[in-house]
Computed example of a mutant assay.
Amino acid sequence: MRLFVHREEHANPEAIEADGSSTVGDLIGRAGLQNGGDADVTAWLEDADEPLDRGATLDEAGLVDGARLHVARRKKIEVSVRYAGETKTRDFRPNVHVQRVFKWAVGESGFDLPATERAKHTLAVCGAETEADRYAHVGSLASGGRVCFDLAPKARYQG
């Protein structure tokens, strides 16, 4: 099966061919984040609440062709969002999409923007010239276990 593996501090996933009888631990090793038995490294199915069992086979873990995973040393990423001179911070799992961070940032627990304003805004990595890919994993964008986003008007990045 072909799996798409996202890693810490790597914006683009790597396609890895694997057999269903390989273990999650084998996959972690192939992703290059483990030197033997580094038990701190975990693999997460995209947007899952818990990491996969390292001893489970890929078949036992329920992985299918085309599955997307995130392999990381950290189980939480500190995410900060800046807007209108204020910063809000919350921890997210490394396999969470930027789109989910956006929903939090514009929602009640974040900056509580009205629906009409939500549609006019986007997230960009702090200091970046373009919008963040809404399907990127926050762990892929993080450095040192942290990532910062600006909640900015979409018009800023268009044309």
Rank of each mutant, 00 (worst) to 15 (best):
A67Y: 02
Q158F: 04
N95Q: 13
G139K: 03
V81M: 14
F102I: 07
R134M: 10
L45K: 11
S21H: 14
G55C: 03
S80P: 06
S143N: 07
D26L: 09
I77N: 05
A128F: 02
L69H: 02
H6F: 10
E131Y: 09
Q34N: 15
R68S: 05
R2E: 13
C148M: 07
I77K: 02
G32P: 10
E8N: 14
E14F: 00
G37M: 13
V79Q: 07
P13I: 12
A84P: 09
H70I: 00
K75E: 11
A142Q: 04
E50A: 11
V147F: 02
G85N: 05
D53F: 10
E129P: 01
L58H: 04
A61N: 01
G139S: 06
R93A: 04
S109I: 11
A67T: 03
A84W: 02
S109M: 09
Q99E: 10
G37E: 10
R146N: 11
R73N: 05
I77H: 07
A124F: 00
A15D: 13
H121P: 08
Y157E: 03
L52F: 07
E50Y: 05
V5Q: 11
F111A: 02
G107L: 12
F102R: 06
E8S: 15
E117A: 15
G144Q: 02
D133G: 00
D150C: 10
Y83M: 10
A152C: 08
G55Y: 04
G127I: 04
V24A: 12
K75T: 04
D19C: 14
E117Q: 14
S143F: 06
Y83D: 10
G32S: 01
